[in-house]
């Protein structure tokens, strides 16, 4: 598994059927009905998070929490190593005759370092995994998909019954059904 989620890219996709919705309940109904009929939904684009939709279209739970834990462990280890090296190994200092091995006074810096590395490590992998990079051109399917419109995106190919997909989308309240072929969209 590569770091970048390849499912997110729409480049080099053959033909896409797009169902445009303006209501999240209708969108959920349509997605459920399509999945029930065995249709593989490539992705759904929404202007806000629609809870439960990821499970319907079969998005696996992310491993970012494991990544976060590993980053935290790294941060904690780095802080331990830094304090030990500077304070015990390289130049031990006697301040108020406090012990120079581990003391509770080391905990705040260990904690802060753990939090910092967890947050930034996880953030970094979140951006990479989701193909989020400064300045890249967004692959938009509808000019209002970040405003008030939701788009179900299905990649068609051999053995996919396109007319059934279109019928389900229409019957579940799609405001429009489009076809995208070679980057050009046409209303069906």
């Amino acid at each position: 598994m590569g770091l970048i989620d390849k499912n997110l890219s729409l480049r080099n996709r053959r033909k896409l059927i797009l169902g445009i919705f303006d209501d999240e309940d209708k969108l959920m109904d349509a997605s459920s009905a399509l999945v029930h009929e065995g249709v593989h939904i490539q992705d759904v684009y929404t202007p806000y998070p629609v809870h439960g939709l990821d499970r319907i279209i079969g998005v696996k739970r992310s491993n970012l929490s494991v990544v976060a834990f590993l980053c935290g462990l790294t941060g904690f280890s780095l802080a331990c190593l830094m304090i030990w090296y500077m304070y015990v190994y390289d130049w031990p200092m006697n301040i108020g005759n406090k012990p120079e091995r581990f003391t509770p006074s080391w905990i705040p810096i260990m904690f802060e370092s753990t939090v910092l590395c967890t947050a930034y490590g996880m953030g970094f992998f979140f951006f990479i995994r989701n193909r989020l990079l400064h300045g890249i051109q967004p692959e938009l399917l509808h000019d209002r998909q970040t405003d008030d419109t939701m788009v179900i995106c299905i990649e068609t190919g051999d053995g996919v019954n396109e007319s059934k997909i279109v019928d389900i989308m229409r019957s579940k309240g799609a405001t429009e059904v489009r076809e995208r072929n070679g980057g050009v969209q046409t209303t069906i």
């Binding site: 684009y45 998070p49 990821d54």
Partner: peptide, 17 residues
């Protein structure tokens, strides 16, 4: 905006993060 499109896959990870 880093190429944000509102994909459900991204939203799921976004909420987790």
């Amino acid at each position: 905006s880093m190429g944000w499109t509102g994909s459900t896959r991204t939203w799921a990870r976004y909420e987790l993060v």
